[in-house]
Structure formats: C-alpha cells, structure tokens
Measured scan of single mutants.
Amino acid sequence: LQLFIKTLTGKTFTVEMEPSDTIENLKAKIQDKEGIPPDQQRLIFAGKQLEDGRTLSDYNIQKESTLHLVL
C-alpha cells in the first residue's frame, strides 16, 4: 500500500509498504529514501505516536493514508 509521509517543513514523499510491515520497517524505508536515522523519527497517525513493534494494520493504516514525520 502506498503511504504519504508529510514532514513539518511541508515536504511530502511516498513509500510503498505492506499492511503486515512494522513501524520499524517503515522507519527503515524512510531512512533509505530520506537518510533520516530511525531513532530520530517520530511518526504520528490520527493523533497517535506509532510504536516500532506494531504493524501498520494494528493502527488501521490504509492505502494512501498520510503519516506525519516529526524529527
């Protein structure tokens, strides 16, 4: 599923993930694309901070959802 990642600077980029992927996987993918170390990434969806060990489906993140990346 394609997700939109929006940064505080207003930049938006996309990543391609599976619902079974963990937040950790997502942070690694963001590191590949943007060079931001996972330990500096905080991801927010629907007002909640996402925890590394959980999956996208745990948070009911669907295709074309927008996640906010806070550094």
Rank of each mutant, 00 (worst) to 15 (best):
A28C: 04
N60W: 05
E18L: 11
N60A: 10
E18H: 13
P38G: 07
K6C: 05
I23D: 00
M17S: 08
L43I: 11
T66L: 11
D52P: 08
E64R: 11
E51F: 10
G10H: 07
K48Y: 10
K27S: 01
Q40F: 09
G10E: 05
L67K: 01
K29W: 07
I5P: 00
E34Q: 10
P19Q: 12
A28F: 10
R54Q: 10
Y59C: 03
F13C: 02
I23C: 02
L67I: 10
L71Q: 10
R54G: 08
K6A: 10
A46M: 14
P38H: 13
L50Q: 00
L69K: 00
D52E: 10
S20C: 05
K11G: 08
F13P: 00
D39V: 06
Q31E: 10
M17T: 07
E24Y: 13
G10M: 06
E64W: 12
K27Q: 02
I36N: 03
Q2F: 10
S20T: 13
L8N: 15
L69R: 00
A28V: 11
V70P: 01
T12K: 09
D32Y: 09
E18G: 08
V70T: 08
K6N: 07
G35M: 06
G10F: 04
K63L: 07
P37I: 05
F4Y: 15
L67F: 04
I5G: 00
L71M: 10
A28H: 15
M17K: 01
D21P: 01
N25G: 09
Q41D: 01
D52L: 06
F45K: 03
N60L: 07
H68C: 05
K33H: 15
D39G: 12
F45C: 03
K6H: 09
Q2C: 05
L43W: 03
L69S: 01
D32G: 11
S57L: 13
T7L: 13
V70A: 08
K27E: 01
L67A: 02
S20D: 10
Q62C: 04
I36P: 05
L50N: 00
Q2I: 12
L71I: 14
R42K: 12
Q31V: 04
T22G: 04
M17C: 04
S20M: 11
N60G: 15
Q62I: 13
K11Y: 11
I36A: 04
T7R: 12
D32M: 14
F45E: 01
V15P: 00
N25S: 13
G10K: 06
L8E: 14
M17Q: 03
E51Q: 11
T9H: 14
P38S: 15
R54S: 07
I44F: 15
I30G: 00
I61W: 03
R54A: 11
S57V: 11
L67V: 11
L67E: 02
K63Q: 12
I61D: 02
K33Q: 13
E24C: 05
K33G: 05
F13L: 07
H68D: 07
E64K: 08
M17G: 07
T12H: 08
T7S: 08
I44R: 06
D32F: 12
E24A: 15
T7M: 15
K11P: 07
T14G: 06
I36K: 02
E24G: 13
K11F: 13
L67R: 02
S20H: 12
T66N: 05
K63V: 08
K48W: 07
R54K: 14
E18S: 10
Q41T: 04
S65I: 05
E51D: 12
K6F: 07
A28L: 14
L71C: 04
D52R: 04
H68F: 07
T22Y: 15
G53H: 14
V70E: 10
F4T: 14
P37Y: 05
D32R: 13
S57Y: 08
R54L: 09
K6V: 13
L43P: 01
G47N: 07
P19D: 13
N60V: 05
L8M: 12
S65P: 04
T22W: 06
I61Q: 02
N25H: 13
T14M: 14
P37Q: 07
I5C: 01
Q2N: 09
R42E: 09
K33F: 09
N25A: 13
E34T: 12
K33P: 01
S65H: 06
A46L: 12
R54C: 04
A46T: 05
L3S: 00
